[in-house]
Simulated assay, not measured.
Amino acid sequence: MEQTWTELFYQETDAGKRQALLAQNSEKDNEAAALFREKLWIARYGKRSPKKDIFVGCLMELKYLSEGSAIDFGGKKRRQAAQIVNMLCLSGISEQPEECREILLSELKNVFLSFMKISREGRGFTSLVFGMGQLSEEGVTRKIAEQISAIAFRTPHFLHMDKEFALLQEAALLAFRQEYPNREHFLKK
């Protein structure tokens, strides 16, 4: 069975190839879906040619929020997390049509796929102590699961923002299940 352009679009992790797919096929979308995909594209990569992925940066910020103290003095971490909710276009998504929710879910899944690809390809990520030796495939899987657990589950939970990050959590599960089938037990939800 041939994949649709949207399936190809959301499986592709290279921003340039994604931009080409979007440009070639956006007229096949209904107007509302095309406008929402365009809005997400601008939120993720900016208006110019894609140089950095803002959504992956948001995942890294969530990871850093989880690494500090579990105490949120003055609500600074919660304010940062609320900014991330806005940057990831999660605020108000429950009021949007179901089609927009599905598009955002697919986009966030793609963000996690990109994050996992970047992590797996990073030499520092897959190496053991001081760059000596390499982690096994099982070790890499556990390390990625730990990071995704921190980003999608631990941080929203300790900030009492599980509702705001529910779609991100769903996307994280979908991406992890796709890349590591039968390994979901590594995630700490």
Results as ranks from 00 to 15, higher is better:
1 M>G: 12
3 Q>N: 11
6 T>Y: 14
6 T>H: 15
7 E>I: 14
8 L>P: 00
8 L>I: 06
9 F>S: 05
10 Y>P: 01
11 Q>D: 12
12 E>D: 11
12 E>N: 02
14 D>R: 11
14 D>T: 03
15 A>T: 05
17 K>I: 06
19 Q>F: 13
20 A>S: 11
21 L>I: 12
23 A>H: 02
24 Q>I: 07
26 S>T: 10
27 E>P: 05
27 E>M: 08
28 K>P: 02
28 K>W: 12
29 D>H: 12
29 D>I: 06
31 E>S: 15
31 E>F: 06
36 F>H: 13
36 F>K: 14
36 F>W: 13
37 R>C: 07
37 R>Q: 12
38 E>M: 10
39 K>I: 05
40 L>Y: 05
42 I>F: 04
42 I>L: 09
42 I>E: 12
44 R>N: 05
45 Y>N: 03
46 G>R: 05
46 G>W: 11
49 S>G: 04
49 S>Y: 03
51 K>T: 14
53 D>F: 06
53 D>A: 00
53 D>I: 04
58 C>F: 06
60 M>F: 13
60 M>E: 13
62 L>Y: 00
62 L>S: 07
63 K>N: 08
65 L>A: 01
67 E>A: 07
67 E>L: 11
70 A>G: 14
71 I>G: 10
71 I>Y: 15
72 D>I: 07
72 D>L: 12
72 D>W: 14
73 F>K: 15
74 G>E: 08
76 K>C: 01
77 K>E: 07
81 A>R: 01
81 A>D: 05
82 A>Y: 02
83 Q>P: 00
84 I>M: 08
87 M>E: 15
87 M>V: 09
89 C>V: 07
90 L>E: 08
90 L>Y: 05
94 S>R: 10
94 S>E: 15
94 S>N: 12
96 Q>N: 08
97 P>R: 13
98 E>A: 15
99 E>R: 03
100 C>G: 03
102 E>Q: 12
102 E>T: 01
107 E>I: 08
110 N>W: 09
113 L>D: 00
114 S>T: 14
115 F>A: 03
116 M>S: 05
117 K>I: 09
118 I>G: 00
119 S>L: 05
121 E>K: 10
122 G>W: 08
123 R>G: 09
125 F>T: 03
126 T>I: 06
128 L>H: 09
128 L>D: 09
128 L>Q: 13
128 L>M: 14
128 L>K: 15
131 G>D: 00
132 M>K: 10
135 L>N: 10
135 L>V: 02
136 S>A: 10
139 G>T: 13
140 V>G: 03
140 V>Y: 01
140 V>I: 15
141 T>C: 15
141 T>D: 00
141 T>R: 11
143 K>D: 11
145 A>V: 13
146 E>F: 13
149 S>Q: 08
149 S>R: 10
152 A>Q: 02
153 F>R: 12
153 F>G: 06
154 R>I: 10
154 R>A: 14
156 P>H: 02
159 L>H: 06
162 D>C: 04
165 F>M: 06
167 L>Q: 07
167 L>N: 02
167 L>T: 02
169 Q>H: 01
173 L>F: 10
174 L>V: 08
175 A>R: 02
175 A>M: 11
177 R>T: 03
179 E>D: 02
181 P>R: 08
183 R>T: 00
188 K>G: 01
